[in-house]
Design a binder for these strands. Structure first.
Lengths: 170, 170
DNA sequence: TGAATGTGTTTGGTATACCAAACTTTTAAT
DNA sequence: ATTAAAAGTTTGGTATACCAAACACATTCA
């Protein structure tokens, strides 16, 4: 109750995200596990949980297990979705390594708004569904990335696959 | 001298970026203008400048104008480039409005690393240079974004332009 | 030259978010 | 049941980054 309508800090978003992940893993989140996951000391977690409790986002009684309230769950889901959409975009479109995609997503999730996330989702779909692009086009990006210019031989092969797909659509 | 090798805070990155922009506009940056640009009070700027001066990133003497040192200029350039690459990507690839692209870029510039920025640059080039994509393909994303599925008539027109381009390459 | 104004600085206070370490509660082991 | 270990909390301290308001310098104009 008394759901404080204040926006969350980056730190608070991280805590919610961690709690959601731990709930999924272990049914319930423990201070020690949150601390480990976020790389902070247990004492810091206690303080943070108090704030989230006051905002009505978690059920928090000292010395008890921690669970998300419906409202907290909703926000944690949003953040987690933001995170994974960004990671998938970095990995599946910009073809960054899983590790790099993950670490950047961790930071970017606090910075991008819903509009950006929605466009990322749609763009991934577009690339896969448009007959002109598709998986081979994405793969060819790596080649372009290192070679600077598209290779002719590569282009010819692309062209054939591409035309075949276009034929199908018509 | 004594260039502190510590990474910059987000706030410090914002200050450097603002100082660079003001140097370009007015030759020199004034406390009042920095404050206005960043939406903080003049007192906050004084404090921040002290820190940047100690890091060797700006020439700072109380009551004098502010200029970037070579080292500070280099970092400000990096941040500014990050900002504009991200903005261009959001606007030119994900087709977000200029305002939305700008506001998201402002926040994302502190979160993404060089690898991501480099991929964004290359991806923009790739889209424009690959015969299978190009400007009309980008434009069609808007259609896909609202309609959910590619339209057949649209696809046919796309196909022709696309094939013409592929012919040229071969 | 001497105010008045504008610009820059300083000081004291707030809020966040963390650590280190003492402390309390709970759980597990004997 | 007692005690040792583990888990959680609290306290005091640090650092950042801001504001508000008093203050200092500097420029301008009368």
């Amino acid at each position: 109750m008394s759901a404080r309508e204040t926006a969350l800090s980056e730190s608070q978003e991280d805590y919610l995200e961690a709690i959601l992940a731990l709930e999924k893993e272990n049914k319930v989140a423990r201070v020690k596990d949150i601390a480990e996951r976020l790389g902070v000391l247990r004492g810091s977690v206690s303080g943070a949980l108090k704030g989230l409790g006051e905002k009505g986002l978690i059920h928090y009684e000292p010395y008890s297990f921690i669970t998300l309230t419906p409202q907290g769950k909703k926000m944690a889901d949003e953040i987690t979705r933001r995170h994974s959409v960004i990671r998938d975009f970095l990995e599946g479109v910009l073809l960054l390594s899983p590790e790099r995609a993950e670490s950047n997503a961790c930071r970017m999730e606090h910075a991008v708004d819903k509009a950006v996330v929605d466009r990322m989702v749609k763009f991934i779909e577009y690339i896969h569904e448009c007959p002109r692009t598709g998986p081979d086009w994405i793969e060819a990006f790596i080649n372009f990335y290192s070679k600077q210019k598209p290779e002719l031989a590569q282009c010819r092969a692309c062209a054939e696959r591409c035309m075949a797909r276009l034929q199908k659509v018509e």
